[in-house]
Design a protein around this nucleic acid. Sequence first.
DNA 1: GCACGTACATTTATCTGATTAATTGGTCTT
DNA 2: AAGACCAATTAATCAGATAAATGTACGTGC
Lengths: 246, 246
Amino acid sequence: MASDLALNDEGRPQLGRNLTYGLLDNLGRAIVTGKFDHDPFPTEAELAKQHSVSRSVTREAVKMLTAKGLLSARPRQGTVVQPTTSWNLFDTDVLRWLLERQFSINLLRQFNQLRVAIEPEAAALAAQFCDEASLQRITDGLERMKAAEQGLDDTLDADIAFHVAILRASNNPFYVQLREVVSTALRTSIRFTNRIKGRTASVADHSAVRDAIVARNPDAARTAMRALIGDVLELIEEAEGVKAPI
Amino acid sequence: MASDLALNDEGRPQLGRNLTYGLLDNLGRAIVTGKFDHDPFPTEAELAKQHSVSRSVTREAVKMLTAKGLLSARPRQGTVVQPTTSWNLFDTDVLRWLLERQFSINLLRQFNQLRVAIEPEAAALAAQFCDEASLQRITDGLERMKAAEQGLDDTLDADIAFHVAILRASNNPFYVQLREVVSTALRTSIRFTNRIKGRTASVADHSAVRDAIVARNPDAARTAMRALIGDVLELIEEAEGVKAPI
DNA sequence: GCACGTACATTTATCTGATTAATTGGTCTT
DNA sequence: AAGACCAATTAATCAGATAAATGTACGTGC
């Protein structure tokens, strides 16, 4: 069907290629760090002067931040930082800026509360709909995890490959889209993740997910994945010291 | 904690306020409609001429579309439409463009496959962590649904208010963020939704979710919400005629 | 013929400076 | 006190020039 969203792959340009993307990155970081919580956001003329770039560059960077929900610009009022509720947390740039600032275990917990909803359902969908190629990618991810256990591959990369493979296998563009978000979060929070679980991720637990998908058993796949991420969540909450809500 | 994301509310500017946002909207629609699947995307000079605006306007619109994952621009290569997998489906503009084009029941199904993962978990979180104010908003939503049953309120608005209240009550910024996405999708697909369920949404089923949250019972809340959205999903799949995967 | 580098053409990226339009806040009028 | 008007501010838009990046074509030497 022509109206369906295709599910292929592609890379993306790295930030900082040019002045505009460099400024985007700097401003994004500064905003999520709260640099403008008290001071007002600079006017476009001030921005240009401070960063030694032309007004075109500042305007284009501001426009991109606006598109991501971080800013809002109006004549006379100026450019203002939006409340965090309008920030697009599913934008990998925004998420990365958030995770890279002073590291917040709280944010990591909240993100895994999202994963525990998403990934089990993705696994269930995969069990229903995934094709041979997707299955192969899942198996490959698992193999890499086994290899990593013996020091033959990178643990984090292997783990990411596995979870991304599941998301892709769901054949649902919303889940597929989240692969970048999950990759970003896992990659950015690696230091912490390594700290709380000295052991490598359990291959057996991951294997259970794959087996359930192969067996075309959605419920089993959902349960297995839920257990997997539920463990991570518990470790985080433990490390956090069973914090009171809010 | 200062590093936490605040969870307040705010409106957002409507599209089309000025030339840039108007062009953004036009181009966004054109891209998701597949207008540039065969023809190459125009150069910034061509765009400016076609839409009778300056190059600044085209560049800023293109930059926003780039930020949303729809475009990519490089010297000499030109500006190209990105594969759909890089489109940020959690951006309300992108989602609205997608839902407003030739209506796709397939996309609606895929979106509800996401909801069936998200909202039950949000309800469970709400049962654990929600405060008085959040609870009140949930109750208000329910009251509005009751009122709507008697023609005293809008059915769709009431339904949206209820589901948004749950998401907000989760106290998790990722779920809270999705309130705009869910609102957008529900509002845009109203015609279809009305068509498949002639009846108003069942107040009793929604009430079960609220009761479970009041009782601080996460599992019951999760189950009740899952049943609620599972029903919608079944209706969609029914209307779709149990379509083969992919 | 082939590898390699050079010149060229194309397109985005950047800069500059000026003008326009929208919005806010204050002032004046009644 | 209420509304109309005026002024200041700031983003929005325009125009035109220069710079940087990069694919293509060509030529050169082997």
